[in-house]
Design a protein around this nucleic acid. Structure first.
Lengths: 197, 197
DNA sequence: CGCCTTCCATACTGTTGCGTATGGAAGGCG
DNA sequence: CGCCTTCCATACGCAACAGTATGGAAGGCG
């Protein structure tokens, strides 16, 4: 009855496996996500794994589902703005994805997208997430008074930028990275600014 | 003496291996690049491989070196413009990286960058290539009369965009992809236009 | 207490892949 | 012709890993 008994008896459930697997995915990529390695990390053997999951693919599906749900929840949150504060919200979205703060999230994002390049199942999930993201971000631009086609262009540029910049290695190029990122955010969001303020 | 003898006697050299390996890298990623698979594709056994290469890592280094040299040669070519045609050249660079035409090149690019996320050796090569790319592209903006800091921002945005857009799956989002890409190119290059024309 | 369900360990098979050792074919060359 | 170098095949050892089979500990419950 005592859940905090001296002997921890750390029963693992499906979620614990999926969370740890997501961590490995971020660090090692989908190819480095092996069930025996994962089991070792959780201090159990794969006997446990194959009780909770049918096979490796079962785990991968669970990871994808969790990722997709989390992303969509996050998108809704990030793109929900009070009336009149849509422009700030656009800047906030750009800022949130700046790899420095949410490095872990971006590592997962990149791992999933690399995975999706070779797996149609994963690609379908990414397509869903991208679609929601683009439509939500476009709605922000539209709310700023940006016309439809320009809103589409700018939100596509926004997401392509945040993912792409995470792939680049530019330490030697510019010393003032903060200014650089601020200016780029302005380039992406500017006309929204012009039209509204 | 007759090099075009009836029996092909297809002697493999190091370059043949590296080229085939680059192809596999593009298709399967660095984790899927195995020497036995590669040998099977070349219709030989790994006995041949280990004569030409010390080990797998030796092959990987050769791939990286070839990639780096090819990229830098290409960058120089793509960013060399006649005086007064710098703006066209900027648009050309954006267009060249549009995944549709040079899909193979972009697949290699993404595979190398994913590889670089977990291997410092590869990351160093990517850093070199990025540095050259950014400086060359910035020179184009500068030649268009764009001030230094804005030129830095715009060329970073340019490359982050072309890589990032290759990671996205947006078929459902916009029907007129060509217009979308044209407009985005304008967003990236526009002030260069304003200042010069 | 004794049984049953839940969760995990152990032990096995089969596959894939790296690296090595060694033999052998084919052509240049004295 | 015979040898030597070049290039590759064959065969091996070894490790990592997916998946299965089976036993066993621990707790709930009658």
């Amino acid at each position: 009855m005592d859940k905090s008994s001296p002997k921890p008896r750390i029963q693992l459930d499906r979620d614990a496996w999926v969370n740890a697997a997501t961590e490995v995915l971020a660090e090692e990529g989908i190819a480095g996500l092996r069930v025996e390695v994962l089991a070792k990390r959780l201090k159990v053997t794969k006997g446990s794994f194959y009780w909770h999951f049918q096979d490796r693919h079962d785990l991968l599906l669970a990871i994808l589902q969790l990722w997709k749900d989390g992303r969509i929840r996050d998108i809704i949150k990030q793109t929900t703005a009070e009336k009149g504060k849509e422009l700030e919200q656009i800047y906030h979205v750009i800022d949130v994805y700046s790899a420095s703060r949410s490095r872990r999230g971006m590592m997962i994002e990149l791992a999933v997208r690399d995975w999706a390049r070779r797996d149609p199942e994963t690609a379908a999930i990414v397509a869903e997430v991208d679609d929601v993201r683009l439509r939500c971000a476009r709605a922000l631009f539209l709310a700023c008074g940006v016309p439809m086609e320009e809103a589409s262009s700018r939100c596509m540029l926004l997401y392509a930028y945040v993912f792409g910049v995470s792939l680049m290695i530019y330490e030697k190029f510019d010393t003032d990275v903060d200014r650089l990122k601020r200016d780029i955010a302005d380039l992406i969001a500017r006309s929204a600014n012009r039209t509204n303020a």
